[in-house]
Design a protein around this nucleic acid. Structure first.
Length: 881
DNA sequence: CTAGGGTTAG
């Protein structure tokens, strides 16, 4: 009688030691488990005998060549294996480590290590096998490989697998499946090809696995090849194979092929039906899916839990469009009693959440009798997706209170929530949890962790996670590159990009991550290089990439080119439009931005919250108060979009800069969400423009409360006092400022000349042409005074107090860059383009106007907020900055 | 080889 110790098909490798296998039932190829080293002193078997023993364990036990203690160890170890006591097994195993045990004993121990997922113990067993010089044959080798892979070390498992000539299809299938689980579909397909080459017998599982991988890879050409091959081998009537084919064709969008296969099937099973329904739904044909579902109900087939789960997760993948179908399924499931199943409820709530109906998801969640970590994770993700980070975090805490332990999925999800609006403290707590629970080997967790740090603005922390990762995938690289781009480390982003392309092939997302780096540098030449790289390597069809290219051009000042590229897009999506609107906005072309926004709506594209930010900020940059208010109302009442903080920032900016200070203040008071520091800061700087000291004090109170350590706010209020000649107050502010650390944000401007970026800082470190630049500026300043442009009093007053202020911060670095631009502009060219890391100061702004008139040059200055086009003594911003 | 939840892009 054969006794199998565990349920997996590998189990023939470990037969209970207490019941000797019945000789008649042994198939020699499958059950050989004793393997002595020919050179061993304990195993006295000759080579001939050994080969006999491998195939026939009975003879081994009969030869009695092993001393009693060894037999004892074998028995003891395997008895502990049976009850699953790894600790005891390892103890006995260690005390026996000098004895050669039965190969089957090693197998049992390895199986137990696999069951317990203990890589540490598994490795110890392997090293003892090695030390004892045990020959690793196909059986022991398979078990070793199985152990490694099961314990998460796919690489080592594969290494062992490669050393044994294993013709067993099981191990091949197992490895293929594992590779596809970790997302390495290429390797899985590679293994398949190798199997064919080596003539390994392939079975139906092999085919379903390889088809799954081909679908995931998008290898739509190879699918039909495999299809033909499996027909030749006679697998065309295996329902699991045909089911995989159906799924494959659906994934390629070949709905008709899938339908035909299904129609011609002789024995459809539940999976066939399920695949048809989810396939239709996934191809945007929810109604067809519903038809099949009804057909299934009408046929004799019992709808099972898997049907419900597949169908609902199909809806979830489709998003809002499948919500109606999802509801129908929900109603049906209630009648059939599926709502008692936790798995069903999990899928159901996830469906509602992914289809945009979070309220229904919450209702399902609240009604569920039992909740698992999966249920909680779905809810947390749902809140995070909607941007309700505090809700997500509250749920996470509630989950922990109920004693549900977060796993890697839950951790990834909560990190995503923390990334949404930057509670870095909580993010760090999660990081500690990850360390304590050894989750840092999980790729998803690490990627989410880096993303959280990047979004919270801490690239140092992101970098330290990145550098310690043993396995990095394309997401890891993209996250870091995108993080550097967005956090204004464009050079780091570009360097990392160069490092990346030496390691692995980038994708469209990489391009969409690196282009903003060029944009933030305003380095049009570098951007064009990347643009060229994109064209050469075929990324230019990816819509994200195309949009990023347009964005880069707009942000580098090449607005006309941006428009040209925009017009060339055959199918513009909401991102394309948004980028274009924002482009016009930052250049001060408010009416063009509005026209583009209207064009978008005419094309039938519904604006979303980001496109409203674009058009609202365009109104702000051009001082279009009435239009801005109109769009704000359209957003709320026509498009039913709840304004977010960013929208309120735009509105406060819009109202206050145009002089409606008290209106702006009332607007803040009316906000249904708590205003943040950015909003108060916008109002405070408008108070300065319009010299409203009283309101400024009120506003500053809010700002100091929200950001007590931000020195900039105190400087701003001090400037307002100084301009109002309130010297007592200036002194008080100065004390407060000096108590707070150093100013971190130094002014810096740069200009790209013939592809080389020339940087000028406030500190004024010497440029090779510093003397020429200084003398040119001197001349210009003199001329300015002659023509009656006296420097504004407010700066002089603050300077007298020898206090850090806008001027000191600015350092007039943009003047240096502009002067250098005039000196080195090639003949024939009339546009000087300068970029500054902070907002331009008003003195420099006046200077730029003057230069544009006197030198007859057009100056395009990009500051941290917008573009200024200076021409003939005027600026396109018309004072709105 | 058993479902269901997770990461990067304006």
């Amino acid at each position: 009688m054969l006794i199998f110790m565990s349920k997996t098909p590998v189990n023939y490798l470990c037969i209970s030691p207490f019941i000797r296998p019945n000789r008649d039932k042994l198939s020699s190829s499958q059950n050989g488990f004793i393997c002595y080293n020919p050179s061993s002193k304990v195993g006295l078997l000759s080579s001939n005998l050994q080969s006999c023993c491998i195939t026939n364990p009975i003879s081994a036990s009969l030869t009695k060549t092993i001393d009693d203690t060894t037999t004892d160890y074998n028995t003891k170890i395997r008895r502990f294996c049976e009850v699953g006591n790894l600790k005891n097994v390892m103890q006995v195993f260690y005390s026996s480590k000098r004895s050669r045990l039965y190969s089957e004993t090693y197998c049992s121990v390895l199986q137990l290590c696999a069951d317990c997922k203990s890589l540490v113990d598994g490795k110890k067993v392997h090293s003892i096998i090695r030390d004892n010089g045990i020959v690793v044959d196909g059986v022991l080798g398979s078990k070793l490989a199985f152990m490694y892979v099961t314990c998460g070390d796919l690489k080592e498992g594969r290494r062992v697998f490669d050393t044994i000539a294993n013709e067993k299809v099981f191990m091949w299938n197992f490895l293929m499946n594992e590779y596809s689980k970790v997302g390495d579909f290429k390797e899985s397909v590679h293994l398949f090809n190798k199997m064919i080459q080596l003539g390994v017998y392939v079975d139906s599982y092999t085919f379903s696995c390889v088809l799954k991988c081909l679908a995931a890879l998008g290898s739509f050409k190879d699918g039909p090849l495999v299809h033909g091959y499996l027909l030749k081998l006679g697998y065309g009537c295996y329902s699991n194979v045909v089911n995989s084919l159906i799924t494959f064709y659906f994934k390629c969008g070949k709905v008709d092929n899938a339908r035909k296969l299904f129609d011609e099937m002789n024995d459809r099973d539940v999976v066939s039906w399920n695949s048809m329904i989810s396939g239709f739904v996934a191809n945007g044909l929810a109604e067809k899916g519903l038809e099949i579902f009804i057909e299934m109900l009408n046929s004799d087939f019992d709808v099972d839990l898997a049907t419900m789960v597949t169908v609902l997760s199909g809806c979830a993948n489709c998003g809002a469009g499948a919500l109606v179908f999802g509801r129908t399924v929900h109603t049906f499931a209630m009648k059939s009693g599926f709502n008692k199943e936790i798995t069903f409820n999990n899928t159901l709530l996830d469906m509602y959440s992914k289809c945009g109906d979070l309220d229904s998801a919450v209702r399902v969640f609240e009604k569920m009798g039992k909740r698992s970590v999966v249920s909680w994770t779905s809810m947390i993700t749902g809140y995070a997706r909607e941007g309700v980070s505090d809700g997500a975090i509250r749920l996470f805490c509630a989950m922990e209170r109920e004693g549900v332990k977060p796993d890697v999925f839950a951790i990834t999800s909560i990190l995503h929530a923390c990334a949404r609006d930057g509670p870095l403290e909580i993010g760090k707590d999660v990081h500690n949890y990850i360390k304590e629970h050894n989750m840092q080997s999980n790729l998803f967790v690490c990627n989410a962790l880096m993303d959280m740090y990047a979004k919270c603005g801490s690239m140092e922390d992101a970098e330290s996670v990145f550098s310690e990762m043993s396995m990095k995938d394309i997401v890891s690289w993209n996250t870091m590159i995108g993080g550097y781009s967005k956090n204004c480390f464009p050079n780091e982003a570009l360097n990392l990009f160069v490092a990346m392309i030496q390691e692995l092939e980038p994708d469209g997302i990489t391009m969409a991550c690196i282009l903003p780096a060029c944009a933030s540098l305003a380095a049009l030449e570098r951007g064009r290089e990347i643009h060229g790289y994109i064209m050469r390597n075929g990324y230019s069809t990816d819509r994200h990439v195309v949009n990023a290219i347009i964005d880069m051009h707009a942000k580098c000042g090449a607005l006309v080119l941006a428009r040209l590229l925009f017009d060339m897009i055959p199918k513009k999506d909401i991102y394309s439009w948004t980028v274009m609107i924002a482009g016009y906005g930052m250049h001060g072309f408010g009416s063009e931005a509005i026209a583009t926004f209207n064009d978008m709506r005419h094309e039938g594209i519904e604006p979303d919250e980001v496109s409203f930010i674009s058009v609202l900020s365009a109104c702000t940059h051009s001082g279009l108060v009435d239009e801005g208010l109109r769009f704000f109302n359209i957003m709320r009442y026509e498009c039913k979009i709840e304004p977010k903080l960013e929208h309120y920032v735009c509105m406060v900016d819009l109202l206050s800069r145009s002089g409606n200070l008290s209106k702006a203040y009332r607007f803040i008071e009316m906000m249904p969400i708590a205003p943040n520091a950015t909003i108060w800061r916008a109002l405070l700087s408008s108070c300065r423009i319009h010299h409203d000291v009283k309101l400024a004090e009120k506003v500053a109170e809010h700002l100091f409360e929200l950001e007590p350590e931000n020195k900039g706010s105190y400087v701003l209020l001090a400037s307002i006092y100084a301009e109002a000649e309130k010297w007592e107050e200036v002194k008080k502010m100065r004390d407060k400022i000096s108590r707070r650390g150093v100013q971190n944000n130094q002014g810096c401007s740069w200009i790209e000349i013939k592809g080389k970026v020339n940087i000028f800082t406030a500190a004024g470190n010497a440029h090779p042409q510093a003397k020429k630049i200084e003398s040119l500026l001197k001349k210009l300043r003199l001329k300015m005074e002659e023509e009656g442009h006296s420097p504004k009093i407010r700066y002089a007053l603050i300077n007298a107090d020898d206090m850090e202020n806008e001027v000191a911060l600015c350092g007039h670095s943009e003047q240096l860059a502009m002067a250098f631009g005039i000196l080195s502009l090639p003949p024939g060219k009339t546009v000087i383009q300068v970029t500054k890391n902070l907002r331009v100061c008003s003195e420099c702004h006046e200077m730029a106007k003057f230069i544009s008139k006197k030198a007859r040059k057009e100056i395009v200055l990009r500051d941290s907020n917008r573009f200024h086009h200076f021409k003939d003594g005027n600026c396109s911003c018309r004072g709105f900055w």
